[in-house]
């Protein structure tokens, strides 16, 4: 494996880790797994606590992962534990469902507004000319989208805050019992690995048990696909060619905030029209100052508080509409 280091002269807004821990963001692991190789290269050896909650009802099917990590995995079973907690505490289940319904509605309403805001961006970009008035209007239209994204994230956070006291997780016995067990399992482990899958379910289960609060401050965290997405500051949902709809990327909500100034884009080759400079540029500019990093098969980006290193071949979207190697 070849890793390119460019961290020594860290500029503002460069991707980096929020704390002292090392973070590893990987591409999909199904066809060309590089998880074990990257961990070996980073000197991470020993039991690995694994979160596969994004696999939902298939959470327990960890044989392949277990084998890939040389039988050194400790499944945390967050999806199962959440269900057990909901079954044991109907009030928790009810309040949780209520919050999720509000969040889904909020996302749909944001989607309506986003569609119109993005249509304005596209229409202005298609108008011929590049005089100052038109260019300024184009920039403002895109800024309006970025502002909408920020407002949405703030509103989602407000919903979380409002429901936090209602859920009162810190005083729910069923939750704290599970959390205690999870903490013990993490205590036996030298790293936490977060698999991909359903990104909203995954983030939800990680938050339900406040997994972040259980991690020793230097414990490395490795995530792939949706697992990498939830490690960032904002979770972005994207697909340029869906069978229905315009394919406007959506902001879902804040992530765990471990990886800073970075948008993780697993499966970008399949999901994004990387050969369309207008779409690439629009996406990259909308997410500024964060870097939009493509995490396809074999991709690996390592972050610590000093900056980042990326495996050769890891690419990013640019404001100019190109896709270039992250290391250059």
């Amino acid at each position: 494996m070849t890793l390119t280091a460019v961290a020594s002269s860290l500029k503002s807004h460069e991707p980096c880790a929020s704390g002292k821990r090392k973070l590893i963001l990987l591409g999909p692991q199904r066809t060309s797994p590089n998880l074990a190789a990257v961990m070996d290269a980073q000197g991470i050896r020993g039991k690995i606590a694994v979160v596969t909650a994004g696999w939902q009802e298939r959470e327990e099917e960890v044989e392949e992962l277990h084998h890939h990590l040389r039988d050194d995995t400790v499944p945390l079973r967050l999806h199962f534990r959440a269900q057990r907690a909901f079954d044991a505490d109907p009030d928790l289940s009810k309040r949780h469902r209520k919050r999720q319904a509000v969040l889904r509605r909020l996302q749909r309403l944001y989607d309506v507004r986003l569609g119109h805001a993005m249509a304005a961006v596209t229409e202005l970009e298609l108008r011929p000319g590049d005089d100052d008035v038109l260019c300024e209007s184009r920039a403002e239209a895109l800024q309006a989208v970025s502002d909408l994204d920020r407002e949405h994230v703030a509103r989602v956070q407000a919903v979380h805050d409002e429901h936090e006291s209602l859920l009162d997780l810190a005083n729910r016995e069923v939750v704290q019992r599970e959390r205690h067990e999870i903490g013990e399992l993490i205590g036996e482990s030298v790293a936490l690995a977060i698999a991909g899958g359903h990104v909203a379910v995954l983030l939800n289960r990680l938050r339900l048990f406040d997994i972040l609060g259980l991690l020793p401050e230097t414990l490395p965290v490795i995530g792939w696909s949706a697992g990498a997405m939830v490690m960032t500051e904002r979770v972005i949902l994207y697909h340029d060619s869906p069978p229905q709809g315009a394919g406007n990327a959506e902001v879902m909500e804040t992530g765990l905030g471990l990886a800073l100034n970075l948008v993780a884009l697993p499966h970008a080759q399949r999901r994004l029209r990387l050969d369309d400079p207008d779409r690439v540029s629009r996406f990259a500019r909308r997410m500024l100052p964060a870097r939009c990093v493509i995490l396809d098969d074999g991709g690996a980006v390592i972050l610590d508080q000093n900056g980042w290193t990326a495996e050769t071949g890891v690419r990013m979207l640019t404001s100019e509409g190109t896709v270039r190697e992250m290391a250059t």
Partner: peptide, 18 residues
């Protein structure tokens, strides 16, 4: 069929990144 089935039953395309 793609347009018809995905309109009648939208999949988890936007949410799942495996």
């Amino acid at each position: 069929l793609r347009e018809g089935l995905s309109w009648l039953y939208p999949g988890p395309l936007w949410m799942v990144y495996e």
